[in-house]
């Protein structure tokens, strides 16, 4: 097989070059399709949740959905009020964040401003293992370790309760908060710290009055990711919080979250198209709207507080 001569090869119309050009275009098209497919995943999720929810609102009025105080879609006399599920979701998320945000932020500050490179390189991956543990294992831990432990302090605590579930979710999302927060803090240029040290500030003052305000844009995305995780967490609450919808703000009671309800219904056998089947899509849509709202807030915060160096 004779190799083409260089002069022929460099001519733009040589067949080898033409084939190569077409091949390049094809490859680019395939790669673009792959990248664009991720958008279709999102569109697919939104489309399905909306379209499967619409028939539900033909049976149930929007006012009932938002104001009814009970959620019992599978009972003989079903009631469709989302409030108890929202309440459970809100409660677990708040408990989780009360634990994860302070701890995550303190850990991030330590890793970014205090620890040396070696300690950081060892501690960060170990800490990230906390986020790698399967959620069902965390559920086991919440039900059979944390709850009995809490019962020693609070003897009246029931076996299923929101508190244990929330606390365990909090531990689980510490790495989400701390990793991204630390990344954001480390991206703050060193001269800002040096300027702060030069006027006599301690490391702590520098961290809290210079670095954290400067990194606030990135830190807010860390918090938002933590919130998203806590809102969408399913197995821990399904296992440890009991799956009864309960309109309460008392963390020592059992309750169900939006996600736990979806799991509970999915475990049973529901005919495609029944109101029970539609109700899990309505619940899913509510969860998605909740998550997206926080993401939009996060996006706005990021833009508002972005510092450019």
């Amino acid at each position: 097989m004779a190799r083409p001569k260089l002069a022929e090869f460099t001519s733009a119309n040589h067949p080898v070059r033409r084939i190569r050009r077409i091949k390049e275009l094809l490859i680019e098209a395939v790669l673009f399709a792959a990248a664009a497919s991720s958008v279709f995943v999102t569109l697919g999720i939104v489309y399905i949740l909306v379209s499967e929810s619409l028939p539900f609102f033909a049976h149930v009025s929007f006012t009932e959905f938002l104001t009814e105080r009970e959620w019992t879609p599978l009972f003989a006399e079903p009631k469709y009020g989302i409030l108890p599920l929202l309440c459970g979701t809100f409660l677990t998320t708040v408990i989780a964040l009360l634990l994860a945000i302070p701890l995550g932020t303190i850990i991030a500050t330590y890793l970014s401003e205090y620890a040396n490179a070696r300690a950081r390189e060892i501690l960060k991956p170990i800490l990230e293992l906390l986020a790698a543990v399967p959620t069902v294992v965390y559920g086991y831990f919440a039900l059979l370790f944390v709850t009995p432990l809490l019962q020693k302090i609070m003897p009246n605590l029931p076996g299923f309760n929101v508190l244990a579930a929330g606390l365990v979710i909090g531990v689980m999302i510490i790495p989400y908060v701390s990793s991204l927060t630390e990344d954001a803090m480390r991206a703050v240029p060193g001269y800002l710290r040096e300027a702060s040290y030069a006027v006599g500030a301690s490391r702590m003052q520098t961290a809290f009055r210079v670095v954290i305000p400067a990194a606030f844009s990135g830190i807010s995305s860390a918090y938002i990711l933590g919130i998203s995780r806590a809102l969408g967490e399913t197995m821990v609450v399904a296992i440890a919080a009991g799956m009864q919808p309960n309109l309460t703000l008392n963390p020592t009671e059992p309750a169900a979250t939006i996600t736990a309800f979806i799991v509970q219904v999915s475990l049973g056998d529901l005919p495609h198209g029944s109101v029970g089947y539609q109700s899990i899509y309505v619940a899913g849509l509510t969860l998605l709207i909740l998550t997206l709202t926080f993401n939009v807030i996060g996006f706005a915060l990021r833009k508002r507080f972005r510092e450019v160096y």
């Binding site: 999102t42 999720i45 499967e52 938002i224 809102l231 969408g232 399913t234 979806i262 969860l287 998605l288």
Partner: peptide
């Protein structure tokens, strides 16, 4: 979209 996708609860993937 890819950034947002990472924040979407996994259970909604199951519903889709």
């Amino acid at each position: 979209n890819i950034v947002n996708l990472a924040g979407i609860p996994s259970i909604t993937f199951g519903l889709m």
